Amino acid sequence: MVERCGNTVSAHESSAVRLGAALAGFARAGRDKVTFLLSEKIRALGPWLEQLLAESLGKDGKGVVPVLDEPPGNPAVYGPDRLFVALTLEGDRSHDAALDALAGAGHPVIRLELKDPLDVAGEFFRWELATATAGAILGVNPFDEPDVARAKENTARLLAQWTRTRRLPQWPAVAEEDGIVLMAKAGPKPASVAEGVTTHLAQAEPADYVAIQAYLEPSAEIRRPLQAVRALLRDRLRTATTLGFGPRYLHSTGQLHKGGPPSGLFIQITGADKEELAIPGSGYDFSTLKTAQALGDLEALREGGRRVIRLHLLGKPAQTLQQLLHLLRAATRKL
């Protein structure tokens, strides 16, 4: 890969430069939702690609939105803001039918084939150079993360407040329904959680995306209903959807959320922790730290003019997420 993309070949011959030029060109043309499909054996490469693109390019109101692990859908549910990128192993035909259907429906599809799982090492080189190329074309510096600091500063301030008062500020609860508390700081008070969420989602424009930020255990039983929520919102709104578990996403897609295109509709989901584990020498526990990080990011998003609501789950998260799914199925019929 170094020989095929290094400084011994021209930009025209470099697969990395061509890939970066394609990412930037499609983004400029409105196709900035880079939707990945990966072979199962190299699926773990996805989160690295997500972080690389989001953190490097999402700034100055520009960038691309990496869409990872979104449930597959009919080509008709995807809008004209999509670019599909498939990284598959030689001999893996599991995505061929879907990719052919997407291409047949007019969606651009980039296919990269690896001969062996160990070839992901070469992909690190290709994608890093491609990202730097895309940054140069888009006019952003891919080597900094200026907007991540805002959430960190907010978190530090909130933790200092906790140390002094043993309390953290909370967003106002404006509605409660089926074990779900809606918290928001904008607009008139809704009559129910369903009405509040519907009002939030009704803001979606064709080129927007819905970002679910879940401060919950990233287990299979939690991920399943959240994936179902993604598929529902994607199909009803025809918008791309992303899912990040907090606080991890703060250092993967957090820069994009606050510094990238203002096209995100954010839904932060929180719940009570099963246990509290003290952090030695800090004066607070991990649960308090996580809560401060969630609140700090909420404030940073609001300060940046982003559209965001918070849903707090009162019951067992997996069961309450099923309630949320039922609520959304009914509420989004009106959209």
Results as ranks from 00 to 15, higher is better:
Ala29Trp: 00
Gly30Trp: 05
Arg31Thr: 14
Arg31Pro: 12
Thr35Arg: 10
Thr35Pro: 05
Leu38Trp: 00
Glu40Leu: 03
Lys41Glu: 15
Ala44Asn: 12
Ala44His: 14
Gly46Ala: 15
Pro47Cys: 04
Glu50Ser: 08
Leu52Ser: 15
Leu53Phe: 06
Glu55Met: 11
Ser56Lys: 07
Leu57Asp: 12
Lys59Phe: 07
Gly61Ala: 15
Gly63Ile: 11
Val64Ser: 13
Val64Lys: 12
Val65Ile: 08
Val65Gly: 07
Pro66His: 01
Val67Met: 13
Val67Arg: 12
Leu68Glu: 13
Leu68Pro: 14
Glu70Trp: 09
Pro71Leu: 11
Pro72Lys: 01
Asn74Val: 02
Val77Gln: 02
Tyr78Ala: 14
Gly79Tyr: 03
Gly79Asp: 04
Pro80Val: 11
Leu83Asp: 01
Phe84Asn: 05
Ala86Thr: 14
Ala86Arg: 15
Leu87Gly: 12
Thr88Phe: 00
Leu89His: 10
Leu89Asn: 12
Gly91Lys: 02
Arg93Pro: 01
Ser94Cys: 10
Ala98Phe: 10
Leu99Gln: 01
Leu99Asn: 05
Asp100Ala: 15
Ala101Lys: 06
Ala103Phe: 07
Gly104Ala: 15
Gly104Glu: 09
Gly104Asp: 14
Gly106Tyr: 07
Gly106Trp: 06
Gly106Phe: 03
His107Tyr: 03
His107Asn: 06
Pro108Tyr: 03
Ile110Met: 10
Arg111Tyr: 03
Leu112Tyr: 11
Leu112Thr: 07
Glu113Lys: 13
Asp116Tyr: 06
Pro117Ser: 10
Val120Cys: 09
Gly122His: 05
Glu123Asn: 00
Phe124Ser: 01
Phe124Val: 00
Phe125Ala: 07
Arg126Pro: 00
Glu128Thr: 04
Ala130Asn: 02
Ala132Ile: 13
Ala134Val: 13
Ala134Met: 02
Ala136Gly: 15
Leu138His: 02
Leu138Ser: 07
Gly139Trp: 00
Gly139Gln: 00
Phe143His: 15
Phe143Arg: 15
Glu145Ser: 14
Glu145Tyr: 10
Glu145Trp: 04
Pro146Leu: 00
Pro146His: 04
Pro146Cys: 08
Val148Ala: 01
Ala149Ser: 05
Arg150Tyr: 01
Ala151Trp: 03
Thr155Glu: 08
Thr155Val: 06
Thr155Trp: 00
Arg157Pro: 03
Gln161Asp: 12
